Computed example of a mutant assay.
Amino acid sequence: MRIDRLPHVIPTVRSDGPFLSHAAHALAEGAQELLWPTRCLGCDLGGELLCPDCRASLPWVAQAWACPNCGAPHGFMTCTECDEAWETRACVSSLPFGGVASRLVTGLKDAHELRLAPVLAALMLCSLDEAASWPAEDGRPRFDRADLDAVCFVPATPQAYLRRGFDHMELVSRSLAAQLGLPLADVLSRSSSSDQRGLGREARASNLAGSIDVLERVDGLSFLLADDVITTGASVRECARALLGRGARSVTACSVARVW
């Protein structure tokens, strides 16, 4: 089921929008492919961003064995990665971080391959579908589309936004919201903070403390909070803490990858 969903969102050619004539559009795509050929992020094979063989060999996190609190693989019985007291009611991650997962994430946010946004969204949706069959700590499904009001995302820092010119998780979350049929709620902002990469667990939490603001009223709403990579959980926990502090009813987290 997961493999069947992905081919529909794997671009094989570039698109410049609906304003070019068909001939000009085809010519532009051909020129771009000649100059910057599309290659698989997994094996470098030409033609697709993620080829069929690499799609078939993705190392999915089995939700049956994942920790329902922090999403860590193999943490269902006893989790060594969390204290079972996260602010999120459940956490779902698609892939262990590393290999193709890391290249997919960095390809979008650092290499500016914007066509990866719907691909990452589809990865998350596949795992959310599976997580709907498994209970969270409260006994309810870890993911329930009917119980959610909107999708939101862990925002980029102002420095990262200026450096990239876009917020990669806004792009991913916009696609995820569309695939779920939910509104996208751009309700979180992030003040300046140091890059989380390279920081340990305590330093990450300290770096993010108080850095997330809620921009609109969220009273009584349930959110699906999206992030690219969950390492210690400091980012999603701080965002969930901010949302709940402003009256949100619940926050379920999801990510493309989980450091393990």
Rank of each mutant, 00 (worst) to 15 (best):
M169T: 12
P118G: 06
P68A: 08
G107K: 08
A101S: 10
A101W: 03
Q159M: 07
M124R: 03
G98Y: 11
C91E: 01
M124V: 12
L128F: 08
A72N: 11
G75D: 04
A90R: 02
D149N: 15
Y161P: 07
Q159D: 11
Y161M: 15
L123H: 00
C82T: 13
R140A: 15
E84H: 12
L148F: 08
S175I: 09
F143P: 04
D149M: 12
A111M: 13
S127R: 04
L162P: 01
R140F: 04
E137M: 15
L125P: 08
P96D: 01
R142Y: 01
Q159S: 15
Q159Y: 05
N69D: 13
A122Q: 05
E170D: 15
L95Q: 05
D147T: 12
L114R: 14
C79M: 12
A122T: 07
A136N: 08
C82H: 11
V105S: 08
R142S: 04
T157V: 13
L176P: 07
V151A: 12
H74P: 04
S173L: 06
G98A: 13
Q159P: 00
C67W: 00
S94T: 07
E130C: 07
L108F: 02
L104S: 03
H74V: 09
V119H: 00
A111H: 14
A146S: 14
G165R: 08
R103T: 02
R163A: 15
A156G: 12
L108V: 09
S127I: 01
C79Y: 06
P158L: 10
A90C: 12
V105Q: 10
D144M: 07
T88G: 06
G99P: 00
C152D: 03
A160Y: 03
P155W: 02
S173D: 06
A72Q: 06
V151R: 08
L95K: 00
F143M: 08
